[in-house]
Amino acid sequence: MVIANAFFSPAAAVTFASPVRSKFSDLESDFFSPHFTLSFSTSSSILTRRLFLHSGITIKMNIRCASIDGVESVSSTSLKSEQELDVPMPIVLIDQDSDSDATIVQVSFGDRLGALIDTMKALKDLGLDVVKGTVNTEASVIQTKFFITLLASGRKVEDPDLLERIRLTIINNLLKYHPESSERLAMGEAFGVKAPAKKLDVDIATHIHVKDDGPARSLLYIETADRPGLLLEIIKIMADININVESAEIETEGLVAKDKFHVSYREQALNTSLSQVLTNCLRYYLRRPETDEDSY
């Protein structure tokens, strides 16, 4: 199967938990200089803090403030109540469409995500280069985006196996540095400290839709229970019936995988018959209770 450059490319995202200290004291020269500047501004009871690193990573944090006698201040009570909320939903999103030169990976885990350097090192060990990153905090949710290319060539990754390894690497770091995420991730059963309390019913969780996305391609949407190697299974199924994947958006949202693929057959959109064949094949394989994990 031919996979266009617009598709598989590595990107990873990890987020700092407030406050911004994170692990900057551990920054290694492999990645960037530890020098940075902070700038502050207040507007409408919002304190905006930006941190610029020489690596190209930008951090923007919006912190709601309480007004006491006309003076802006952070409410310790509200901060404490936020910390006592339930464990947030961990989300890993791999976006192959938005940037023509690099894959974007976005990670969010409420306001708890950290271990940026460890994640960057893990990605570098996969032969990847983090060309830039952005960190944005809004409404107590921290979102980090990494723009990633192959270290050797500077190009996007076209290998689906490597893309799956990137996804699992980020999830494994989540489990390592935030063990409380174990119960919210499907991988928690295999790699975490505690399996999810309630598993998804695969039959109920699986939804597959195919629709035209222009004359030359179709949009395939898959929602199903997440598991290791899921992306490889999906790609293999499409390759077996000669369907070409042009680009994709791959999202892991807790126990659920929500993936979008731009696909074609002989440079044309899928007709009704082929769409039905694809849907039936995917539904059969995705609903199998067992997954051969030896190959992942």
Score class of each variant (00 low, 15 high):
Asp99Ile: 05
Asp101Val: 15
Ala102His: 14
Thr103Asp: 04
Thr103Lys: 05
Ile104Cys: 02
Val105Arg: 09
Ser108Cys: 12
Ser108Met: 14
Phe109Arg: 12
Gly110Leu: 13
Gly110Val: 14
Asp111Thr: 06
Gly114Val: 14
Asp118Asn: 15
Lys121Ile: 01
Lys121Gln: 04
Ala122Tyr: 01
Lys132Glu: 05
Lys132Ser: 10
Thr134Tyr: 07
Thr134Gln: 11
Val135Leu: 14
Val135Trp: 12
Thr137Gly: 06
Ser140Asn: 12
Val141Phe: 04
Val141Cys: 07
Gln143Ile: 11
Gln143Glu: 07
Thr144Cys: 07
Phe147Met: 11
Leu150Ala: 10
Ala152Ile: 10
Ser153Asn: 10
Ser153Tyr: 07
Gly154Ser: 13
Arg155Gln: 15
Arg155Pro: 03
Val157Cys: 13
Arg165Asp: 12
Ile166Leu: 10
Thr169Phe: 00
Thr169Asp: 01
Thr169Trp: 00
Asn173Trp: 00
Leu174Tyr: 12
Leu174Trp: 06
Leu175Asp: 13
Lys176Leu: 10
His178Tyr: 02
Glu183Ile: 15
Glu183Tyr: 10
Glu183Pro: 09
Arg184Trp: 05
Ala186Ser: 13
Gly188His: 08
Glu189Gly: 08
Phe191Ser: 05
Val193Tyr: 03
Val193Asp: 02
Ala195Arg: 08
Pro196Cys: 02
Pro196Ile: 03
Ala197Met: 04
Lys198Val: 15
Asp203Pro: 04
Ile204Asn: 04
Ala205Glu: 13
Lys211Cys: 01
Lys211Val: 05
Lys211Ser: 06
Asp212Asn: 05
Asp213Met: 02
Asp213Phe: 11
Asp213Glu: 03
Gly214Glu: 02
Leu219Phe: 03
Leu220Asp: 01
Leu220Tyr: 00
Tyr221Thr: 10
Tyr221Ser: 08
Ile222Gln: 00
Ile222Val: 08
Thr224Gly: 01
Thr224Glu: 00
Asp226Pro: 04
Arg227Gly: 00
Gly229Ile: 08
Gly229Tyr: 07
Leu231Tyr: 12
Ile235Gly: 03
Met238His: 09
Ala239Arg: 14
Ala239Thr: 14
Asp240Val: 10
Ile241Arg: 12
Ile241Asp: 11
Asn242Phe: 06
Ile243Tyr: 05
